[in-house]
Design a protein around this nucleic acid. Structure first.
Lengths: 214, 214
DNA sequence: TAGATTGTTAATCGATTAACAATC
DNA sequence: TAGATTGTTAATCGATTAACAATC
């Protein structure tokens, strides 16, 4: 039952499930539970046992023990490592509107390995202001800032008609991963990842469900 | 080439792509383009031609014409109908913190068929306030409010430790579809849809990409 | 007509689920 | 030991991609 965990073999879908595992395990840990079985996790999160077993097998370094299950604390570490929550990545945010401000204000990102270090906006009225300790700079300073601090993650929270332009600017500034909240397809060179937060799709799914129910 | 569009045959993945099609088509429409081919859409959005053809075939009522492609205006209508953007659903939001306020302030949801009609929060300091014309009520009034207005969509933007409780309250109030921004698995009865906005997963994917690049 | 473009059927791929063997 | 629980191999399912026939 010895295995080398092949982290790159974790599917995208599975990565979406791990944050839920982690939250559940953290609660167990707080309550001083020492071991947990895949069956219990599965029934709590309404998943199939096999899926949980497979997911856990993909990240856990020491295999689970028959009759006992997995040691909770160790599993937490393994998941955090797999999701890279243990190393903090710096990010900059472009567009300090309502959503941008909300993200700047959110204190929880450090738990997920993200630290927003600064924001950029074209609106003069916002420049120089600070939100949650993060300063807002003119957009012109983005390139220089990212270059000096070697920031590799950019968050786009500008109106969708400005997103493409901002994207180009981020690429030119050496950004390698973009978290895009604008409802626009972004064209990026190979090697750059765009992660779209596609809220329009979520809304369509909600609305569709409702239409079928009533 | 006659077909009845079977809307329920649209895959979840495809639903995620339609908002991007729609945005692109709206731009064409503004520029007075009358027809468009799947090939052009595909190359603009970096997708495969076949996929676009299949997606469009799933929603478009009148088939596209060889040599010409699809009529832009008609396609826009078909997509809007498929995504139910044409009928406005009412929603209430629970948790008027930073993110909740940002969503309340966003003017664009009506384009996606959603109207947030009110917000609820336990914080007395927020109650009675108005954001973007939407009033914030005490949480105790949620049940009555949803019952009277027959609201069927609930948005959860409370801290994750409060999410489960809020979810139960929403269910008890007759909510049938939940848009969940908290990083918590929600247990709901059959027939109720939970659409999770899983930002932790997005962050993990960004971070993972970065780790592999450097 | 020739060719661009469509829609569809079949093949492939990735992820989930089922069946089962291994083990503390 | 018996049985709970694990990890893995095979079957299924859903979505994408390839190949191709239909048509304006």
């Amino acid at each position: 039952m010895h295995r080398v965990s092949k982290e790159s073999s974790i599917s995208k879908q599975a990565i979406g499930r791990f944050p839920y595992y982690l939250k559940f395990l953290n609660e167990l840990n707080r309550d001083r539970h020492e071991h947990i079985s895949a069956a219990v996790i599965a029934s709590s999160l309404q998943l199939y046992e096999v899926q949980v077993r497979k997911d856990l097998a993909a990240v856990s370094r020491s295999a689970g023990k028959p009759r006992l299950g997995f040691p909770v604390a160790e599993l937490i570490d393994d998941i955090k490592r797999a999701l890279r929550y243990d190393n903090l990545d710096q990010a900059i945010l472009v567009g300090a509107g309502h959503l941008g401000k909300a993200l700047l204000s959110y204190k929880g990102f450090s738990d997920y390995g993200l630290e927003i270090v600064a924001a950029f906006d074209t609106a003069v009225s916002l420049q120089g202001a600070e939100i949650n300790g993060k300063k807002i700079f003119p957009l012109e300073q983005l390139n220089d800032f990212c270059g000096r601090l070697r920031v590799k993650i950019g968050i786009i929270t500008v109106p969708s008609n400005a997103a493409a332009e901002v994207c180009d600017l981020l690429i030119a500034s050496g950004i390698l991963a973009i978290w895009n909240f604008a409802q626009t397809h972004l064209n990026v060179p190979e090697g750059v990842l765009v992660q779209n937060e596609n809220m329009a799709a979520s809304l369509a799914l909600l609305s569709k469900h409702l239409a079928e129910k009533t």
